[in-house]
Structure formats: structure tokens, C-alpha cells
């Protein structure tokens, strides 16, 4: 047993704000692991993904959720996807690596990102102020994702439900990012 105990303090832990019926909050214990598909062995890697999660690697610009709703796969690039799942312990990458059995390269991204869930009628009007991607339901269906930039910060926006978006941005600028989304909500409410 060590004499010293480390406590986990993600930058937006406990963040929860309401604007009427619209809620902006930080999901708890969201782990993110990136998967890179080995060049030439993409098929093998895709099979391993299918075996591990029981869903196929989604197409570019989309995500998919496992049948038990526990895990989301986001396709961010031709050879790269993120796995998102709830995991309070700092071993997310090991868990995914074990599932994929060496068929893809994995990197822990949990602490590289901060996450905010934005849900409610003001979600889209608020994002209109900072997000240049077209989020109209006809163009951005449920499970659509886009990696883009908001207020000079790299960001990923994912539509998880009719009026619900998951936003990811760099963890070091988490406070600036949360402020940008909050200010948008204030401006449209």
C-alpha cells in the first residue's frame, strides 16, 4: 500500500447547467480509446472490431452504439476510430486492447478530451453560434459525427438523439470550451 493516494479530477467533473429545458452536463467516467487500423490489415482489424463489440466499424462521419448501449464507436478517419464507454478506472486502453487481441493499435484518449452532453430544444440554436457544420436533422442524422473547430478549439460533435449532442474537446482547454457552449446557450435563451 502506498503512502500517497491519487484522486481523479477531470476538468469538468460535476459540470451541470440548465437553461430552461436544455441541459448541459459533463458525463461521468467517459473513457475514450482510439483504434488505428493497421495498413493492409484493415479487414482483419474490422473483423476483430465486429467480434469485440458485435457491431461493425461505422462509416466515415458516423457512429454506432452496441446493442446493450454500453459502447459507442465513432469513425473519425479512414484508419481511425474512437471507442467510448463508461469506465471509472484508468485502464480503458488495456480493456480495449485485450478485446481486439492485437488486431489494431490502441491509444488511451480518455484524459486527452473533455466531454459535454447538450440536450434539449436550445441545443441546435446554441451550437449554431459556434459550430460551422450543418446540424440540420436532414444533414446530420442521429449517430452522425463531425470533427471540426469551435471558437478556435478542435472539437467533435456527435448527434446521439433527436435533440442531444455529445461534444468533445481538448481537456487542457476544457474550461474555455465549456464557457463557449454556456455562452451560446445564454445568448439563445
Amino acid at each position: 500500500m502506498s503512502d500517497f493516494i491519487l484522486t481523479s479530477e477531470p476538468p469538468l467533473a460535476g459540470f451541470d447547467r440548465r437553461f430552461g429545458d436544455t441541459v448541459l452536463k459533463a458525463p461521468k467516467d467517459l473513457a475514450i480509446v482510439s483504434i488505428a487500423l493497421p495498413l493492409g490489415d484493415e479487414t482483419k482489424a474490422e473483423k476483430a472490431i465486429k467480434t469485440a463489440f458485435d457491431i461493425a466499424l461505422p462509416a466515415m462521419g458516423t457512429s454506432d452504439v452496441t446493442s446493450d448501449k454500453s459502447t459507442t464507436l465513432m469513425r473519425l478517419a479512414n484508419d481511425q476510430a474512437f471507442v467510448l464507454f463508461a469506465c471509472p478506472t484508468p485502464d480503458a486502453e488495456r480493456q480495449i486492447a485485450a478485446k481486439l487481441k492485437g488486431a489494431a493499435y490502441t491509444t488511451d484518449q480518455t484524459d486527452a478530451w473533455c466531454a459535454l452532453e447538450l440536450s434539449g430544444p436550445l441545443a441546435r440554436p446554441a451550437l449554431e453560434r459556434i459550430c460551422m457544420v450543418d446540424l440540420h436533422p436532414d444533414s446530420f442524422a442521429i449517430n452522425a459525427i463531425a470533427r471540426t473547430v469551435m471558437e478556435h478549439m478542435g472539437a467533435i460533435v456527435a448527434r446521439t438523439d433527436a435533440d442531444t449532442y455529445l461534444l468533445l474537446s481538448a481537456s487542457s482547454s476544457a474550461k474555455s470550451f465549456a464557457h463557449a457552449v454556456e455562452l451560446s446557450l445564454e445568448n439563445v435563451s
Binding site: 466515415m60 478517419a77 479512414n78 481511425q80 471540426t148 478542435g154
Partner: peptide, 14 residues
């Protein structure tokens, strides 16, 4: 017309 290199830095990094 010119062929140019652009990098999708705030996107898929291609």
C-alpha cells in the same frame, strides 16, 4: 488551375 495540398487539421487529419 493548380494542384495544392490542404490538410484537414480540424477534421480527419487527411
Amino acid at each position: 488551375p493548380m494542384q495544392e495540398l490542404w490538410y484537414h487539421e480540424q477534421g480527419d487529419r487527411s
